[in-house]
Amino acid sequence: MSDAQRMRDAKKTLGRQLATWRTLRGLRQHDLADAIPMSRSTIAGVEAGAQVVDETFWSRCDSLLHADGELLATYRQYRELERRYQQERAEAARRKRWGAVTAVARTGDIRHHETAVAAPGVEADEQAAGPSPVSVMQKVLESAVTGAGDSDPAGVDLSLLEQRVLDAHDARWRRGPREAPLLVVVGGYAGSGKTQLGELLAALTGWPLLDKDTLTRPMTEELLRALGGDPNDRHSDAYLAAVRPIEYRCLLNAAFDQLRHGTSTIVTAPLLREAPDPRWLDRMRSRFTASQIRVATIWVDADIESMYRRLASRDAARDSWKLNHWNAYSGAVDLALRPAWNHLVIDNGTGAVRPIEEQAALVGRIISPA
């Protein structure tokens, strides 16, 4: 039996095990999907052995179906089998694709390598015009491999790195230009939970998360000090007039760098000035249109009491002015504030019907159905 067939059989075994436990508990696929939460088609795909999903899914299934750890243990066995399979596949790919590169690299004849060893799928006349990005990538990785062997002293498995890079490259070009990247903008007041939602969405989609405070706080604090202000005051004239615009420019520039390379990106920021202004979105869209970038906006809503609890709990220096002047700050909070364009509202207040984790799972299905 081939290794690939063994992987397919293991996936089907895992799916059948889930179906057995679900049937034993008297649940339909719809029932389990609603409880996870997950789409019914995903449950059906897993049980048919067509997909596996992540460990969180199997942990929840194990708990809901009272499988006493059996489902989770089988899932982890499958992942270990997959890891060994991928490692062997990567090694075979390295020998097949780069055997000639390795021999040339060890002689030090790089000029000969560039003309004699073409990247897979690259014609000789294209190679003569200069090394392709794929061939450059191969050279860089091969240098690492020939310099350190299959594993370096720190325990990094370079053969797996090679395969991950090649798989990502293949997947990127298989997608082609049909799938425009998506910018997900998550806004809301301080303490509403927008960063928490952003982190949940990033975990669900695998997309990078750019949080305004994480990205710009060191710069903001130094600029405020240079202007003679309090580095933790986000309500002073110096901050609002001189620093805040730079923060948002840095944030959106960083997002655009991801998006223009085809990577969907999640951005979290208050957007309290931007949300009510439709011209802000128009300006951003005009910048993104040429690159076929889509924009989705999510507003995280919360009540005053829950925002206060979160701010007090996280005890961040940047929130000190708000907490020390809570009556003045909370009196200026407009709970009716919403973006002036199409958006989705997430209720993260005290009386929310669903916890934010469940709402994030629903949003994840919308923005990244795959």
Rank of each mutant, 00 (worst) to 15 (best):
S291Q: 10
V156M: 03
D347M: 09
V184H: 03
L200F: 10
R84F: 08
V243H: 02
S2A: 11
T74L: 13
H112N: 08
R174V: 06
K11H: 01
L24W: 04
A119Y: 12
G187A: 03
E247N: 01
L272M: 14
I246Q: 12
N324Y: 01
L251D: 03
S236Y: 00
V185K: 00
D303A: 03
P37K: 08
P177C: 01
P276M: 04
L311S: 01
K11C: 05
H169C: 13
L18Y: 05
V345K: 06
L323Y: 05
A4F: 08
P181S: 00
G99S: 05
L65Q: 01
G193R: 08
L223T: 00
Q29I: 09
R6F: 04
R318N: 15
N327I: 08
S159Y: 12
W58T: 07
P245W: 06
T297W: 09
R338P: 15
D54E: 11
Q86S: 04
R273I: 12
D282I: 03
I293S: 02
V140L: 15
P276V: 04
A203S: 15
R249H: 12
L251G: 02
A67L: 00
R287Q: 14
T289K: 07
V101N: 11
S330G: 09
W98I: 07
V136K: 00
A67R: 00
R294H: 03
P120S: 15
D150F: 06
A203L: 14
P153L: 05
I356G: 04
I36T: 08
R79I: 15
G187P: 01
N324I: 01
V295R: 05
Q127E: 13
R249F: 06
L251T: 08
W98M: 14
P181D: 03
T220W: 10
N253Y: 08
R309D: 15
D157L: 00
A317Q: 07
P278C: 12
G155K: 05
S159P: 06
T195Q: 02
I246G: 03
A4D: 11
Y329D: 01
H112E: 14
I43P: 04
R89G: 07
E142F: 09
Q17F: 01
D3Y: 03
S291K: 06
G206V: 08
A238T: 06
V185G: 01
A202P: 09
I304K: 00
E123V: 02
G26D: 08
L227I: 07
A296R: 09
R76F: 11
P177L: 08
K139P: 14
I298M: 01
L24R: 07
V140Y: 13
P245Q: 08
R310W: 10
A35R: 15
E358T: 09
D109P: 03
G15H: 00
L32K: 05
R175N: 13
S143Y: 10
T216W: 09
R25A: 09
T268D: 01
A328C: 06
I266F: 10
E88S: 12
T107W: 00
H325P: 07
L166D: 07
L158C: 13
T146S: 13
L27A: 10
T115M: 14
S41V: 11
L14G: 05
L311Y: 01
G198E: 04
